[in-house]
């Protein structure tokens, strides 16, 4: 059913990505590729793998931006995958029903056996989160690791998306954003999490946490007392002469 589910649960699974902490290591991108190339969407094909103009299917891509100028400037690493939007146009445009949003958790998926490869969903996604497999002629996308997060064959602790489990700087968090009391929802509230392209109305489930302001001087740090005539050595260190310090 390409129409959005009429009846939905409160659960809204998604990610929270901390732009203050992401060091841009691409681990989330490659670990995602590694899990998913053998998973629900297998394979994540690469074209010209060892030739010029190499490209392939990636569910997660890490961009780098520079924002602001001068001392306030920041370099910001910016990982981006499907945001599992509340109003995903990628789903509603799909003519075949291959794209769908799950009622129970809000995950947006593609059924590759139904997809005709019309690419319309990729046109409808403002975020560039859809991935066309040129070799197979079908659309693929981030599954939120649906075959991992619910996989009862894996130990409980491993049931998180690959990109979250692997992130070395812990810049990625996974959870239920439909539940205001979940850890991720609290994080969003505390840190002022925001939506990408809010003006377009997709209402992404996945939120981003802003970088903290740059060049933050510490509070309460005094200035060094600067005598009018700064003691030149050796007089300046005479203050240590009488220190009685025990070894």
């Amino acid at each position: 059913m390409t129409s959005l589910p009429a009846e939905r649960g409160a659960k809204r699974l998604g990610l929270v990505i901390d732009l203050d902490t992401c060091v841009g290591c691409h681990a989330c991108a490659t670990n995602c590729k590694e899990w998913n190339t053998g998973g629900h969407s297998a394979p994540l094909t690469d074209v010209n793998a060892y030739q010029a103009e190499q490209r392939g299917v990636w569910f997660n891509r890490v961009h780098t931006f520079e924002a602001g100028q001068g001392a306030d400037g920041r370099t910001v690493h910016f990982p981006k995958n499907c945001l599992h939007c509340e109003f995903p146009d990628c789903v509603t445009v799909c003519p075949t029903g291959a794209s769908y949003k799950r009622a129970e958790d809000g995950i947006v998926l593609v059924d590759h056996d139904k997809c005709i490869g019309c690419k319309l969903c990729s046109w409808a996604c403002a975020y560039g989160a859809r991935e066309f497999d040129e070799d197979e002629g079908v659309m693929k996308k981030c599954t939120l690791c649906i075959d991992k997060i619910y996989n009862t064959r894996l130990p409980e602790a491993d049931r998180v998306p690959a990109c979250v489990a692997t992130c070395p700087s812990r810049a990625r968090h996974f959870g239920d954003l439909g539940d205001p009391h979940s850890a991720v929802s609290k994080l969003v509230a505390e840190r002022g999490g925001f939506d990408l392209l809010p003006e377009l109305g997709y209402q992404p489930t996945t939120k981003y946490l802003p970088p903290r302001p740059a060049a933050r001087p510490l509070d309460n740090v005094g200035q060094r007392p600067r005598p009018a005539n700064e003691d030149p050595a050796p007089a300046g260190f005479l203050r240590w002469m009488d220190r009685m310090l025990s070894r």
Binding site: R55, A67, L197
Partner: peptide, 24 residues
Amino acid sequence: TATGLGRLGPVSLLEMPHTEENFL
């Protein structure tokens, strides 16, 4: 607005996620 970084000032791309052109 696409990155939410507009609040920091002008935003520009430093690195693409991949060197060569992808499907998108």
